[in-house]
Amino acid sequence: MPTTMKKTLSATDIVLVGALLAAGAVLRVFCPPIFGITPNFVICMYVLAILIVRPSLAQALGIGIVAAAICHFTTKSMIPYINFISEPVGAVVTYFLVRGLSGLNRGRITFKPFIVTLLGTMASGLTYVSILKFAVLFVATAKNPAFLGLLTVILTTALANAVIAQLIYEPIMAALGKKTTSVKEAGK
């Protein structure tokens, strides 16, 4: 995997981003709630897309905006417009994590997909809940127990997305014929 970000995305990169976002949308729409929580698989997929194609900051922001549009139409939230802030924030955080984190390997396995997806999902979710809190939901009562419930949803979704990303990262990289950083380092 290259250590620098790309100035332009190839057609293959664009198709991969589109396919991952589409898969996230389908999973989000058709996955039944798990203990009352519908995971946001779109976040998982845009984080994976940023991990794999290594876009520029502007391109990562664009991926976040496209993900927001997808989330807007697949959400069960009462205020879907907040996605247009939370998903770009998640994508930008992911961009910086992909650039900044290294040494997350244990032998031939990289844990970067897990860590980056966990933190990217949390950034998106915490942004969403913070805006929701200040916009409407918690105006009347400062200690509304729904806030703790929403934090539980964020953490649960972040963990689920991180596990999924970790499990499918290597197979996607292999299917694309790309070697991961951990494989390159293990061969040295």
Results as ranks from 00 to 15, higher is better:
Leu167Lys: 10
Gly149Asp: 05
Ile172Lys: 07
Thr157Leu: 03
Leu150Lys: 04
Lys179Val: 05
Thr157Lys: 00
Ala186Asp: 13
Ser182Lys: 07
Ile164Leu: 15
Val153Lys: 08
Ala175Thr: 15
Glu170Lys: 15
Leu159Asn: 00
Leu167Val: 11
Val163Gln: 01
Leu151Thr: 04
Leu155Asn: 02
Leu176Asp: 07
Ala165Lys: 01
Lys179Phe: 09
Glu170Met: 11
Gly177Glu: 08
Leu150Asn: 01
Leu176Val: 05
Ile164Ala: 10
Leu148His: 09
Thr157Ile: 04
Pro145Val: 01
Val183Met: 11
Phe147Ser: 02
Val163Ile: 11
Gly149Ile: 05
Ala158Asp: 03
Leu151Val: 11
Lys184Cys: 15
Thr181Leu: 13
Thr156Ala: 07
Met173Lys: 03
Leu176Phe: 07
Leu150Ile: 08
Ala162Trp: 02
Leu151Tyr: 10
Leu176Ile: 08
Thr181Ser: 15
Glu185Arg: 12
Leu167Gln: 10
Val163Phe: 03
Thr180Cys: 05
Ala162Ile: 02
Ala146Phe: 13
Lys184Met: 14
Gly187Asp: 12
Lys178Arg: 14
Thr157Trp: 01
Gly177Asp: 08
Ile168Thr: 07
Ala146Lys: 06
Val183Pro: 02
Gln166His: 12
Leu155Tyr: 05
Ala162Asn: 00
Ala174Pro: 07
Ile154Arg: 03
Leu155Val: 14
Leu148Ser: 12
Ala174Asp: 14
Val153Glu: 07
Val153Arg: 06
Leu150Thr: 01
Thr157Phe: 01
Leu155Trp: 04
Leu167Ser: 09
Ala162Glu: 01
Val153Leu: 07
Ile168Gln: 06
Pro171Cys: 10
Ile168Asn: 06
Ser182Gly: 08
Ala174Gln: 14
Glu185Cys: 11
Ile154His: 03
Ile168Phe: 12
Tyr169Ser: 00
Thr157Cys: 06
Glu185Ala: 13
Ala158Phe: 03
Ala158Ile: 03
Ala160Lys: 01
Thr152His: 07
Glu185Ser: 13
Val163Asp: 00
Asn161Met: 00
Val183His: 12
Val163Trp: 00
Ala162Cys: 05
Lys178Ser: 11
Met173Ile: 06
Gly187Val: 12
Leu155Asp: 02
Thr181Gln: 13
Ala158Pro: 03
Val183Lys: 11
Thr152Glu: 05
Asn161Ser: 04
Lys184Gly: 11
Lys184Val: 14
Thr180Arg: 09
Gln166Asn: 06
